[in-house]
């Protein structure tokens, strides 16, 4: 996560569009348990298993 965060920062400083593929601990893997969430900038959580795992780096609340 720290490495991806740094890449996102570098990409942003060079105005390069960046997507990251995230990992999280998952229990169900089908979108039911709400366990593998990542916090987004709009103060909401998204599920890595179903809403991701690839997100636009600028949407994530690093």
């Amino acid at each position: 996560m720290e490495m991806l965060k740094e890449i996102a920062r570098i990409a942003k400083s060079h105005r390069i569009f960046c997507q990251v593929s995230l990992e999280e601990h998952m229990a169900c893997g089908v979108g039911a348990c709400q366990g593998c969430v990542v916090r987004m900038k709009k103060n909401e959580y998204k599920r890595v298993c179903k809403d991701g795992p690839v997100f636009n780096s600028e949407e994530i609340a690093w």
Binding site: H25, C36, V37, N43, Y45
Partner: peptide, 16 residues
């Protein structure tokens, strides 16, 4: 309800 901040799961001995 948005829920709690992650991580939301930890595996333990024979448990979750």
């Amino acid at each position: 309800t948005a829920g709690n901040p992650p991580p939301r799961f930890v595996e333990t001995a024979a448990g979750l």
